[in-house]
Nucleic acid binder design. Structure first.
Lengths: 142, 142
DNA sequence: ATCTACTTGCAAATGATTCGCATTTGCGTA
DNA sequence: TACGCAAATGCGAATCATTTGCAAGTAGAT
């Protein structure tokens, strides 16, 4: 495992599980659910527990290291590294594949909501539809 | 209760609970959770059951009558009438108040994602931050 | 090396949502 | 109007992601 020491904020201990979770997220191509992260970590070390993974993720989220999101209307949360670089996704409503959007529609957006009425901290954008493969399958049905 | 017959698609039965759920959503100022809807319906008719409300909402969602969303990273789903008119919200991260945005940033947005790669059906935008009241409270803390 | 607060192992609890099944009801048809 | 049947509901129990409690283990400051 590579040395992730540098990214851990002072005050949070660098344990092997935390390093593993971090490394899994670092190598993930898209946001992962806690159970997915758990199983990937466990591939390298069978001693982890799911609740530990949840606790580590909570910790990372509150340290700002990790972002927690929900995709579509699923009740499951997904986690991704906070790369300090704005990201949004397109989600396939059929296979749930997640595709990254490289530009953000909010950049030039001026909401018609008085700034005195709402102090904006951030935003989230999500597009949904069919990915290439599923679109092909669906349209071949008729 | 007013006559909601006209809005029910053919093939779905107009029962009293369905009418009540519909009417609650019709009068709601913002998306409601299933338990909230349940309790409002029960105010008028104690015989409803929470699982029935869930089933009615599922039915309405698959008929396109109702939209199901999640707010922030909450694990609870919210439901609102599909008013055939694009809506997005700003959500207060402190009190969870939901404020409607009257314009949509996606209108002029051209994503840098090949149309052949993704068949866009819709999108979701969410802004988060502090509402006026909470912003006042928070900033008075220091 | 020691101490202490932070972490984890493990199991049991929680909370939203779904499911199973017997009973009831809406509504097309006779 | 009465009948029949598929759809809807009552009710409780099950499910699944996530959280919590507590005892035991460990990182890292001194």
């Amino acid at each position: 495992m590579k040395d992730d020491n540098s990214v851990f904020p002072a005050g949070i201990k660098r344990t092997k599980h935390r390093r593993s979770v971090y490394s899994v997220l670092e190598n993930a191509a898209s946001p992962l659910s806690a159970p997915e992260i758990f199983s990937r970590v466990r591939d390298g070390d069978a001693s982890v527990w799911l609740s530990t993974v949840y606790r580590i993720l909570d910790c990372f989220v509150s340290e700002g290291l990790v972002l927690k999101t929900t995709v579509m209307d699923s009740s499951m949360a997904f986690y991704e590294l906070n790369r300090e670089q704005h990201r949004h996704y397109a989600v396939c409503v059929n296979c749930r594949k997640v595709i990254e959007l490289v530009n953000c529609p909010m950049e030039k957006f001026v909401p018609e909501i008085a700034e005195s009425d709402f102090h904006v901290l951030g935003h989230k954008v999500e597009m949904y539809g069919y990915c290439k493969d599923c679109d092909k399958k669906i349209s071949s049905l008729h």
